[in-house]
Amino acid sequence: MSEAPDRRPDGVERVALFVTCVGELVEPDVPVAAVRVLRAAGCDVDVPEGQTCCGQPAWNSGFTADAARVAGTSLDALERAVADGADAVVVPAGSCATMIRLYWPQLFSLAGDEAASARARALGERVWELTELLDALPDDRLGLGSVAPCAAVYHQSCHMLRELHVAEQPEALLARVDGCDVAEWAAADQCCGFGGTFSVKLPEASVAMADEKLDVLPDGTEVIVGADASCLMQLRTRAGARGMQVRTEHIAQVLERALPDDGGADT
């Protein structure tokens, strides 16, 4: 299986953020937090104009040409940012990072655009999932303080875990946050049941999958932390419908809250 390439992040200073459509539309607090955390880690953050969505909804539904059309727009935007000097493209969502890094080359190739496929492959080398980059940075670049004490669990999203092989990094970061007490969760690496259009094509199975995770939350869990806003939305809205008192929070938001008041790094 392909492992995450061994990339050296030490020199990363200018990053381009890929907001993602869920970040843009549904959960803007997530990309906002990502920007602030990256800045605190000494990065100069740009949000390239012209980006939209990675194309995943259509790709996962089999509509290659439509997916390529949308992805092409974002490819153009991200490529421009790299040309303008960005060292890395950072994505605060495991599944969008997977889409860009793993599936874009195939997507463009199937859509008949080999040139775009090659460009996507080259771009992919610079694409990082947010926690993957933050964890790879030297610890002293990102000072993390404390948050109000909370009983948390961490949800490992599928693409991040199995396609990007970003498994340990999020919890390693959370371990650096005082007050965020991450408990063992038997179902941590189980799929949340979202799966994009799966959640509406087979809603009964989708809800049952969420339930299976929620059923085994450790007693007293206050917050489910994850790195994919869409998984968290699935878990939160199901928990809400069941009347469960559990919140969800993207890891970028936890890290943001943990930033020392001076903004972290002393750059």
């Binding site: 549904v26 906002v32 949000v47 959640s199 509406v200 809800v207 699935q234 809205t237 199901r238 419908a241």
Partner: peptide
């Protein structure tokens, strides 16, 4: 979506 799940709230402003 709504059978079994709440609708997510949308934010006041986009990113």
């Amino acid at each position: 979506w709504t059978d079994g799940r709440d609708l997510p709230d949308l934010p006041a402003r986009t990113f």
